[in-house]
Amino acid sequence: MLPHATVCTLPKFAADLEALPNEKFICQKTLREEMGGIFGRFDQLVCFVSLGAVVRLVAPHLKDKETDPGVIVVDDAARYVVPMLSGHVGGANAWAERVARLLDATAVLTTASDAGGTLAVDILGRELGWQVEAPKINLTRVAAAVVNRERIAIVQETGSRNWWTRKTPLPANIELLDDLADVKPGYHQALLWITHRPVDASFWTQWPERLIVYRPPQGQDEDARPGDAAAKEATA
């Protein structure tokens, strides 16, 4: 159940949904006319409509992946749950897996990192409260390096060690190191640095478009897990 979700529907379906405890939004116009307001109001849209129809409904309202809500499509038989928009930053992939569990359905994730079972560098540590520091071009270049199986160094000096949440091992092209001195420029094609240290401008220059810095909360326990209060708050 999703008790905090708002159910948006057309008047002809309203009576069928009366028993649900959720807040209701009954469209007074066509769904196409209402979509602008719906798109701007919610963080996630779970649509029980064909994927093609959803594409046409949301297309006029798209801005960018930093601000667009997650959009998820469920087929009429509730067998497949497809995150269509804002899979990573918007959280649609995670929500699609949650909805799929509720429906006993299959989540169909098409983003490269999920399909390949590797890191999503733009949201690494997000559920642990980590902040990402990097120009957008760095996120794009490093994400490509990860999915293309280039050699990646991760140096972790602080924060929880429970950032890898997949059931499979860390991919072989990603090397986890404890010391920045162990990174080999030229051998490693990109660097993910989990640290509280200041990063000098010259260091960014050494890793042009290939460096991402992650900032865990101060004092975060290395055993903190996603969802723990300790994951997002510094210990006293």
Rank of each mutant, 00 (worst) to 15 (best):
M1V: 06
H4R: 12
A5L: 01
L10I: 15
K12W: 01
K12Y: 03
F13K: 12
F13D: 15
F13G: 01
A15R: 03
A15F: 05
D16P: 00
E18F: 01
E18A: 14
A19P: 01
L20G: 09
K29I: 06
R32T: 11
R32L: 07
E34P: 00
M35R: 06
G37R: 05
I38F: 11
R41N: 13
D43K: 14
D43P: 00
V46W: 08
F48A: 09
S50A: 12
G52C: 03
G52A: 02
A53P: 08
V55I: 15
L57F: 03
A59H: 05
P60G: 14
D64S: 13
T67E: 06
V73T: 12
D75R: 04
V81L: 09
P83W: 02
P83G: 11
S86N: 02
H88E: 07
V89K: 15
V89A: 15
G90S: 08
A94R: 11
W95T: 09
E97M: 12
R101M: 00
L102A: 11
L103K: 12
V108K: 11
V108N: 12
V108F: 12
L109H: 04
T111R: 03
T111S: 11
D114K: 08
G117L: 09
A120P: 13
V121W: 07
V121A: 07
D122G: 15
R126D: 10
L128N: 02
Q131I: 11
V132C: 11
E133S: 12
P135M: 08
K136R: 15
R141D: 07
A143D: 01
N148H: 11
N148T: 05
N148W: 03
I152P: 02
G159Q: 04
S160T: 02
S160H: 03
R161A: 15
R161W: 11
T165V: 06
R166M: 08
R166N: 04
N173P: 04
I174Y: 06
D178N: 13
L180V: 13
A181W: 00
A181N: 05
D182C: 15
K184L: 15
G186R: 12
G186Q: 12
L192K: 04
D200R: 13
A201W: 04
W204V: 09
T205F: 03
E209P: 02
I212S: 01
Y214N: 01
R215M: 06
P216M: 06
P216N: 06
Q218N: 15
G219K: 04
Q220A: 09
E222Y: 11
A224W: 02
R225K: 15
A230C: 04
K232N: 14
A234R: 13
